[in-house]
Amino acid sequence: MALMTDLSEDAEVTRGDRFIKTAVAILGETGRTDFTVQEVVARSKTSLRAFYQHFSSKDELLLDLLDRTMLQSVQAWRAETTGLDSTSALKLVIDRVCRQPESTTQDSLNRALSLYNQHLAETRPREYARVLSPLHQLIRDVIGQGITEGIFNPGLDVGATAAIILQTVVNAQRLHWLGSELNGTPIDAGQLYDFASSALGIRDEPDQTAKPTLAELFAQIGMRPGTRDGEFAMTMPVSPHVVNTSGALQGGLIATLIDVAGGQYGLDFLTPGTTMTTADLFVRYLRPIRQGSAYAVPRMLRSGRRAMVMQIDIYGDGDDELAATATVNFAVINGETPKGVRAAT
């Protein structure tokens, strides 16, 4: 992982900083983490006592180094993503994590830190998670931004997805040292971005697909006008999409069928310049409908200037026994008068 490891020369350098700078120098020279505390003390021209006043072990020194460099790197990357859209921000973060070293010293340092990351993950997972948490939060924020923009899949578990992308990118970089041994060419940032794009459901443009109308939704479940014994009815077939756990037509859809049947039937009773809306609906369910189609047959009980009251009975295919019956009260209000569908039957 391409982390920033610069400790400013202009800032006041504490003794703890001196130990960390010495560790960075050793890592950059050797690419290994098997140096000793004595080496750090000797090169920093301090004492063992001073070292142990700041760190309990070499692991604590390296952990502090990783903490600092991760935080410093993520702060810089976050600043770079400010003002970018989510896809550009994601590309930038992956590119920065995957950026190849510009010098042999940085290459050695990256190798050493990558190996130590693996050691931490195996021996001190809680501390390792803490080290990675700033990067995890940055990726979470980018994913959240993408969902808000309508670019990423809104059903994502943001925290889990961010963790998966983080682990994928970090581990891919660790395996980068294998070069082309696995698949002919090393995995690069572009390939990792494409992989993340697939996981996030990234679209080139925000979803501008027209949302289905209510009539189209009803058509998808097979609700349509028809007749029963020569009378107007709304029908709906029993199918796997509309049944409950017992295999019967779902009660809420029966209520919807009743409401639509009454609404369509009542349109022919409206005067020009008026429309109608459901005021209340009471359904009594009598028996299940498990096969064939359901028929909602409306009958006007009272039609006035301000209200309509209907009884709507539900039957199954070829069955005169009621499956449900409802009383529906519609309010008549001013508005554009819709066209009914009874003529289509």
Rank of each mutant, 00 (worst) to 15 (best):
A2G: 07
G16E: 08
T22K: 05
V41S: 06
S47F: 10
L61M: 02
L65V: 00
L65W: 02
D67M: 13
T69A: 10
S73V: 01
R78H: 14
G83Q: 05
T87K: 14
L92Y: 05
D95T: 14
V97A: 07
V97F: 10
V97D: 04
C98P: 00
T104G: 13
T104Y: 09
T104L: 13
N110H: 13
Y116D: 06
Y116H: 13
L120A: 09
Y128M: 10
V131W: 07
S133G: 03
L135A: 12
Q137C: 04
I139T: 09
F152R: 00
P154S: 08
G155V: 05
I165Y: 06
T168G: 10
V169S: 01
A172Y: 08
E181I: 15
A189Q: 08
S197E: 03
S198M: 10
L200C: 02
E205P: 06
Q220R: 15
I221Q: 04
D229Y: 10
H241P: 01
V243T: 08
L253G: 01
I254Y: 06
A255S: 12
A261K: 03
L267P: 02
D268E: 10
L270K: 05
P272A: 02
P272D: 07
G273D: 06
A279H: 11
V283N: 01
P288Y: 03
A296Y: 06
R305D: 04
V309Y: 11
V309C: 09
M310I: 02
Q311H: 11
D313Y: 06
A326M: 03
A326S: 14
K339D: 09
